[in-house]
Amino acid sequence: MTKTFKIVVLAKQVPDTRNVGKNAMKEDGTVNRAALPAIFNPEDMNALEQALRIKDKFPGTKVELLTMGPLRAADIIREGYFRGADGGVLLTDRKFAGADTLATSYALSMAIRKMNPDIIISGRQAIDGDTAQVGPQVAEKLGIPQVTYAESISASESGKITILRRLERGIEEVSTSYPVLITVNATAPACRPRNAKQLMRYKHASTLSEQNDNEHNSYLPLFNMEELTIPEWGVADVGGEEIKYGLSGSPTKVKKIENIVFQAKESKRLSASEEDIDSLFIELISSHTIG
């Protein structure tokens, strides 16, 4: 029998900050977050593709998604199913609320311990924070090596895994042993499209919370819900020290948030006078555009 792997893909549901159009703006020029669609974090999609490629090469490999977020983040697990994953876990608990990257990493690492994979793959960073911290922090919490900025991954039966990394000014190829955590760059191949068969099979996959929301789910008992139930894990399921979760587990605090006010493009005419240029530069500095 050929080698099989157990792979966990870390994926996050994020507001689509790339498309902050005019309709996503409130009258005061600030972002109306509620108007932004929730999407599968783009680089996590690249990560999922890498996991599925290993599965293509080593049939019998199991690819599971792990996502942390509110109940609606079950969409991430369903999307994973549609593209060929074998399942996933929604990590959700009020006690996770207010987590910064460190508390998030702690929660993810506790869930990963329970899932016990050979390979953990995530996107390099999420577009709502762009911090790129969670991958390395999860690896540290698990006490395993990390390989960041991956563009391609070749697993092998020999117990070694080779990774091509895309760095600022070049490439690096490294090899390491399992278990390992790998973060994937946007330059890696895009994720394959949804598979029609998988879509039919899993479109009713749902968490117990969703199933209990009877209003629109009265037909569910017709299906074999055992296969279609997405597990929801909370602090009670993954264990660990409660103080390390959520707000209390977060060393960083947000002191202040300033909204950047968008203006409609209406060009302002200035003269070459010292006064005009001075007032422009004072404005640019105070808006953090320069300086």
Binding site: T17, V31, D128, G129, K253, K256, I257, N259, I260
Partner: peptide, 16 residues
């Protein structure tokens, strides 16, 4: 900057 550059956040670490 955070949130795709749409906000500017000031972060502190009071205790750590």
């Amino acid at each position: 900057p955070a949130f795709g550059g749409n906000i500017i956040a000031t972060i502190i670490n009071p205790e750590h």
